[in-house]
Design a protein around this nucleic acid. Structure first.
Lengths: 352, 352
DNA sequence: CTGAAAGCGCTTACAG
DNA sequence: CTGAAAGCGCTTACAG
């Protein structure tokens, strides 16, 4: 049909139009599914696009006014299994909503955070998702940029509260549910592993635990043993083992252990088992995050599921709502998603 | 200084120029660091940009001819710890080379792979990184698109070979090194856990192992016991435990175990320890991937490090080289990166 | 149903 | 040192 069967490279609607003997406006109409194109013409254009591998430039399209369809997503860190699940879920939810994710990881480096947000704005993204919040150093700069550009934005699970639309896990409720579960099983003395104000989302959990302990008529001083090492680099297996060793040194051992996350819980469980303890016969253990591995180890681990899917769906809805209202910022609007207790073998009644 | 201290929103060089009483070309020159601008003017422009939160559009800039500085990165899956490390490392290496990563995960869905590659091309990325290869269904379409657009591309660790520049881990060498390590310790009978042609990069390792066993004067039929379950969904702890249980049922047990990865190795180790075996006293175990956790468990796990950093650096160099040569495709150019044996406590001499 | 103008925000030449 | 033209690839609104 065409004069040359494999022309060099067609990278613009004009070139394609020339190739087909049409005007570039017709190509644009086909691209945008306008109804006024003759079906035969439309078919010819589509076939040529396929054959020549023509992909219309999003740069040109977005520049002319239509939106980019891209959402800038900023993560603090990567590598932890729970973060991987967040990333994967958010990407899927965004795709299902017709967006594409532009992802960046900042490793908590504030300079990088500023660079990344500027880059997102330079790409003229349709929205911003900030997962885990942002560092303090440039936070006012970043908030200023967001306001100046009137770009829809949502914070997911920030460590500190920001004056931006936010969706977060209700960690206080998570602690409450876990404590209630253990209390109802009969436990009256508790050890915490790694639950310290200095770790991510540690403070809200510390505070919640103290509150619920007192509400239950127990004493924070006597019935709650706080085991942690503020110098710990990572909240991993090794840390759990280390803290479990300290638990074993206690003279009057609590009958239930609440760990900062599943890794620490599992590390502790392994150490206690090695030392001859029975779980939950001698001591109950509960984690936080409900990792895949937690349903596979023996005993299976009681944990708190973050309902990541629900969080991300709510976050994306928040973004969409801001776009539709053409009223980008609804500040201090916080949605809290309730976590779910997954009760498994590692928690049971205390020894008699 | 300016008439209105907080103007609505400055989103173009023209608007900023008007605001400052300059021409938009002067703004562009400041943006691009051209030397012919009066320092005082340059300073004024920079300060106004900062104050107003002006971020020049990358769409306009890229459209005019300069490149986007973006690299499209396509991953097959997310969630496995080793993949997270690959993602994080690649992103860092790209950033250090002055690029930004546009990441997409396809979950091995071939339709999505095609969509993603088209989107990258529509964004006029400066290069493509395909991690883990692409599915068969649309592979010729995708290769065609890459060729038609003359975009620099590199495959990282494809499961199948493709006629594209490739950087991959030398898994054959990995198996060889691991086997040699165990053989030199005195082992003469081996069990493999989950090393099966159907798992990712399983075939090359199966083949390599058979070859090196025979080269060592041993018999594949008699001295190599293949334990795996082709129906296994995931190569995780649970799978390792399951395979270890089968190992324990063997009448003449091999003295060394090679696992498909660290998770399976650790799962097996936990099961064997529970069953009363001593590691490496009764049996040696080696993994593959050198996860963080492998240096934290007891005994620490002998493993193979993938040298991810080196792989990603080589991949990015390949991309840069293609750009510089203005000769995008050097097909079938395969770089193999040697893995490294990390010898730890889980491997030792066989029992006497 | 299809053509030609105008313009999105930028940069690369060319003038002064 | 700074201004004005031309044009990157696209779409919207206006003609025919």
């Amino acid at each position: 049909m065409s004069r040359q069967s494999h022309p060099k490279s067609i990278v613009s609607t004009s070139a394609l139009a020339r190739h087909l003997g049409l005007s570039r406006w017709t190509i644009s109409r086909v691209l945008n599914g306008h109804p006024e194109v003759k079906p035969e013409t439309s078919r010819r254009v589509r076939e040529a696009m396929d054959e020549l591998g023509f992909v219309p430039s999003l740069l040109g399209r977005a520049l002319r006014g239509s939106s980019t369809g891209m959402i800038g997503v900023c993560f603090q860190a990567i590598g932890l299994p729970i973060i991987s699940r967040k990333i994967a879920t958010l990407q899927r939810v965004l795709r299902e909503a017709g967006f594409r994710a532009l992802q960046e990881v900042t490793d908590g480096n504030p300079d990088l955070e500023l660079t990344v947000v500027k880059h997102f704005l330079a790409m003229r993204v349709d929205g911003l998702v900030l997962v885990g919040g942002i560092g303090e150093l440039h936070s006012s700069r970043i908030l200023g940029l967001i306001e100046q550009h009137r770009v829809p934005v949502v914070m997911i699970d920030p460590m500190e509260p920001f004056d931006l639309p936010t969706v977060e896990l209700d960690r206080e409720e998570g602690i409450r549910v876990v404590f209630r579960h253990l209390f109802d099983l009969g436990h009256r003395r508790f050890a915490t592993l790694g639950i310290h104000p200095s770790v991510p989302w540690g403070k809200v959990r510390c505070d919640a635990l103290r509150r619920v302990v007192e509400e239950s008529g127990l004493s924070v001083a006597d019935d709650l043993v706080d085991l942690n090492d503020p110098a710990a680099a990572e909240l991993n297996f090794a840390y759990g083992k280390q803290l479990a060793a300290r638990y074993l040194e206690l003279t009057r051992r609590p009958t239930a252990i609440l760990a900062i996350n599943d890794q620490v819980a599992i590390g502790a469980m392994l150490h206690l088992q090695e030392a001859g303890s029975s779980i939950p016969g001698d001591v109950s253990i509960v984690g936080f995050d409900n990792l895949d591995v937690s349903s596979h180890i023996r005993p299976t681990l009681t944990s708190i599921d973050q309902h990541i899917e629900e969080i991300m769906e709510s976050g994306v809805s928040t973004l969409v709502a801001q776009r539709e209202r053409a009223e980008p910022l609804r500040r201090a609007e916080v949605v809290r998603i309730a976590p779910q207790l997954i009760s498994r073998e590692s928690s049971g009644p205390p020894p008699v």
